[in-house]
Design a protein around this nucleic acid. Structure first.
Lengths: 329, 329
DNA sequence: GACATAACTGAAATCGATTTCACATACACA
DNA sequence: TGTGTATGTGAAATCGATTTCAGTTATGTC
């Protein structure tokens, strides 16, 4: 069913049908009703692709995620889809599976008027990214990393990590181990570590390199890094920069015959869904990822109207979740 | 940059540029090179929307999910995107947030030649669904529920649940409580319960209604249902039809001063990522959701080539994961 | 050298909508 | 009764690609 068919059935021209559908221009009441009746009878829905071509907008938002199957990404996408739907938009998912080249390919592809706006959950933003982003004709919002000149929505990594560290200090911990990730990830790798270091310095606590370990994002890495630290010394507390790393650390401690939190306290960052159901329930920092997704989408719609507003950095809130994985010394 | 511009720059007609891009028809080697050079110089990428309109396919797959932020859904989507990418396809996410009306709206919208194939992760398939699905012109694959006349990919809910129950029986449990969900969800609500009942019957174990509770899908429900069962009697084992329900049950047991597994054994179904890191690690059934997503996508591509093949039911495998949450009596 | 066939090319039609433009009719006001 | 404005309508152009069709040139075969 094309608009031509509707026009024929209603005894009018395609132009009139279009006017009825889009509710603009003059249409005599009788004809309007005739058209609406036909539309209803045959359950006509206009071809969105033809509309996109003519209107020069696709009514689609592109979301580039490093790995859709993570809790963080899927919550962000949930937020984005919610806002998108409210604007009558669809969401196109570009799942890069942590492949940087794919990320750039998708940026190019999506930029190509195939979506009206892009939300990128970045881990690493390279010069290659910037080169492609510079040529983008649709607005883009970066989520999770701060990129100069582009609108970014960042989690308050510094304050979150600082608050978490400070919390341990205030529970009288002094031997606080650190399990982090590679510095390629600016927000998690660099910022969260800096906050840890700054906090220790502010409280005049010696920083001990051998109590610090760096690795990947997964639970296994948390386990191994914890083992590595234990082989040197048993700290009284451990700050892991993600909850998954914290889970790995807890298991390494348990396997080493230590009790959490009685022998060693452990905290994470992120507040994954199951954090409160772990044993012990994990003390961590709660980020509102779904809200970040909503913010990102709303900001993209903002930018679609006012492209010159590009460049702001918005910061999401966080909340300390104190649970049973920390002991007061 | 449109194809016309490329044509002008290369001194040929748009038709020739198209022939070069799509590698069909005759093009003299020199012209081909000239065109390719221009394409490369200006980094030309054809407008996918115009292509979709002309080619009558969008190179997009639509995925309707009840809730993208669940582990199951996001893993399925991960599988779908992987296969889609291999076929040069994009993935459109329709997140219904468990709203049945939205599900039907999306079906209508997507059917409208806006995607070339649909994958629906259904919970409940109503007559309204069927009415819309009947009119669909693009292939559809239903994931997680069996729907007559349509290609479905189902998890082997019956065998999984039966195997899980039988496992408990073989560990000499006889008082096996059951925590299920509403029957609106055919696969989880009906099939998994039937398997439990059949297994008990086959082993001549009396079924006790008061050891069975039905509710929603979340952890809290698991907690409450377990409390309800405990108020009647303390069973020796509990079968929860999802891992989340199992987690809720475990917490209710712990809060009631009972030990898992020494006082009560608990098993789930689904094997969420953290199942093995829970305390105790949860005995459950592992489903390959990402693989299901891949299968679904591959099947859709199959159906795009051979629409007459519609109607098959494919079953995914599962694997019993025996961990420490069960004790031998 | 004649004729068939292959190689090559671009103008124009097409996909399905929207919008401009030109034109027609109705209505108001002097 | 004329003139200006509001109302109403459809033919045709347009969005950016692909493809058919008709026509031209090159190549091969007898």
């Amino acid at each position: 069913m094309r608009i031509k068919d509707i026009a024929r059935l209603a005894g009018v021209s395609p132009a009139t049908v279009s006017r009825v559908m889009n509710n603009n221009g003059y249409v005599k009441e009788e004809k309007r009703e005739a058209v609406l009746k036909v539309i209803k009878d045959v359950d006509y829905q206009p071809n969105p692709i033809a509309q996109s071509l003519k209107n020069q907008k696709s009514q689609m938002l592109g979301v580039i995620v490093p790995k859709i199957s993570t809790e963080t990404a899927s919550r962000v996408v949930a937020g984005v889809t919610e806002v998108a739907r409210a604007h009558g938009y669809q969401v196109l998912i570009a799942n890069t599976d942590l492949d940087i080249d794919e990320e750039i390919n998708y940026l190019k592809f999506l930029s190509n008027k195939s979506v009206d706006g892009i939300i990128m959950m970045g881990t690493e933003v390279t010069d290659q990214h910037l080169a492609v982003m510079d040529k983008l004709i649709v607005p883009i919002v970066i989520l999770g990393q701060k990129v100069k000149g582009y609108t970014s929505i960042v989690h308050n990594d510094y304050d979150a990590s600082y608050t978490m560290t400070e919390y341990l200090v205030k529970q009288n911990h002094r031997d606080i181990a650190f399990i982090g990730v590679d510095e390629k990830d600016e927000a998690v790798g660099i910022v969260r570590k800096k906050a840890y270091l700054d906090c220790l310095n502010n409280y005049k606590i010696d920083v001990n390199d051998r109590l610090m370990a760096i690795g990947d994002f997964d639970i296994d890495t948390g386990y191994q890094m914890m083992q590595k630290i234990l082989s040197y010394k048993t700290p009284t507390a451990v700050l892991a920069v993600t909850d998954h790393l914290a889970i790995g650390a807890i298991h390494a401690l348990l396997d080493a015959g230590l009790d959490v939190p009685n022998d060693v306290s452990v905290v994470g960052i992120g507040d994954i869904k199951l954090a409160e159901y772990l044993n012990p329930p994990l003390t961590t920092v709660h980020y509102t990822f779904k809200t970040s997704g909503k913010m990102a989408a709303e900001t993209v719609f903002e930018l679609m109207k006012n492209p010159e507003k590009q460049g702001d950095t918005l910061m999401t809130t966080f909340e300390l979740k104190t649970r049973a994985s920390v002991r007061v010394l």
